[in-house]
Design a protein around this nucleic acid. Structure first.
Lengths: 252, 252
DNA sequence: ATTTACATGTAAGATATTAACACAGATGTT
DNA sequence: AACATCTGTGTTAATATCTTACATGTAAAT
């Protein structure tokens, strides 16, 4: 049905920010590009999206454009990130309490999270705002000094927050991983925060798109054996996968 | 000169909303379309415009489109708020440390703040993101449970943050004011937070647009005599102004 | 004087968009 | 039932726009 499809497109665009016609085409393989074009035209006339060459973008996304440094990063590896985020989101159950970090993968996760009764802790400003859109979901922002490059907070002060909070699950995304150096990130205070989250949570899921493999960042916050589930994409090397499976870590 | 031309294009776009390449070409007959394209590309990368098929449009224009049917609240009294925010911003000096709340007036202030070496504490998510754009400015986000309606945090936990932080100045905006009930807001935890800020700061500036006068919200967080400076607009009633002046409060 | 970097121009080639027409199914009319 | 009409859709060709790659000129840097 046309109307449903148009709605879907609009939602998709709000989630993804920007889509090319070809991407849309893979989402809706049973209609022609021409039809999708006409849908976009309608959405544009309704003021809900903006058509750009190659596809369209959501109006919301445009407002975000002013967040340059962050926005640039957001555009990278989006497809993999979204798929990983979807996998992660599928693991979340109602009434649970979890921690999400502030990275771009976490941002994708925030968008994919269902609007159910869960409690989320995060140190990501953009993540918190995204989650605040959901009616049934409860968000707690971890305070601290704002890191401009990734719009996250981190500071020793955050430590005091953790003292009185409880969550079962931490879902973290790493900036870098090697088997020897484990999961690492660029900021010491952030690493500290993530370590705390890891200690606090009963279990820890790691989101890692394969582009991060082989990279090393200054501060390791978790080792291979620290995690319970690894969520990654299809490019993930088989031999590395073995390493995880050997330690009873679920890889998906 | 290239830079001037790019500026001109940006201004033109802000004025006209949208321009095609051909229109631009008639404005700048002495350069080729290719050059204009490259200019647009740069402007896009700077996040100032959006390139659409045939030309480009200003980001502002897009925001206007999205505001039309929907985000009325943010747009309310914007002009007054901006003027008030400008007054407040003019009072800020380099190397100072201040608290800003998370309301829409505070958001205007965040935009108007100069990019100088100051440290800002805030409980507003959007305010923190806005401030994170500034290179020289340091931001600390106060954590807590996120209030969805105004994208601010507030929670008893925030109390612990204040223990180890210091700021000279708190610039607050109230949702309501009457001489009898003082400055009030809708949430108890928020009122609590603001009270703490008020106690912590050496001085307190209140931003109050005149539309808030006569309104009463459930939780008072400051009384008339608690503040040092009142920043308001021209509509502010003269007899009320007297009340403030009587107590040696600067009204501007 | 030579190099380098940068802004610009030109034109071919790639890509995306529109326009025009055709077709099918749903709905309404006689 | 036969017919007209409308709407959504697909196909293709024609058109418009965009990018790429290379050439040129100019001014700053060495």
């Amino acid at each position: 049905m046309k109307k449903d499809r148009i709605e879907e497109i609009a939602e998709l665009l709000d989630k993804r920010g920007k889509l090319t016609l070809n991407q849309l085409d893979t989402y809706f393989p049973d209609v022609s590009q021409m039809t999708l074009r006409r849908d976009l035209l309608q959405l544009e006339q309704a003021g809900r999206i903006i058509r750009v060459r190659g596809g369209a973008m959501s109006v919301k996304e445009v407002q975000k454009v002013s967040n340059e440094p962050y926005a640039k990063k957001t555009a990278m590896h989006t497809d993999e990130k979204i798929r990983i985020a979807q996998k992660a989101a599928s693991l979340i159950e109602e009434n649970c309490s979890l921690f999400i970090d502030g990275g771009t993968t976490a941002m994708c996760l925030a968008k994919e999270l269902p609007d159910i009764n869960i409690h989320v802790f995060t140190n990501g400003l953009a993540v918190a705002i995204e989650l605040a859109q959901k009616k049934n979901l409860n968000v707690t922002m971890l305070g601290g000094q704002v890191m401009k490059e990734n719009l996250s907070t981190a500071s020793p002060v955050a430590r005091s927050y953790f003292e009185n909070t409880n969550f079962e699950l931490a879902i973290i995304s790493a900036s870098a991983f090697t088997p020897e150096n484990g999961f690492s990130c660029g900021s010491m205070v952030e690493a500290d925060l993530l370590k705390m989250a890891r200690n606090k949570a009963k279990s820890m899921y790691m989101m890692l798109d394969s582009s991060k493999i082989g990279k090393i960042m200054p501060h390791t916050f978790a080792r291979l054996e620290d995690i319970d589930v690894l969520i990654t994409d299809d490019e993930f090397p088989a031999e590395l996968k073995e390493e995880f499976l050997k330690r009873d870590i679920v890889v998906m």
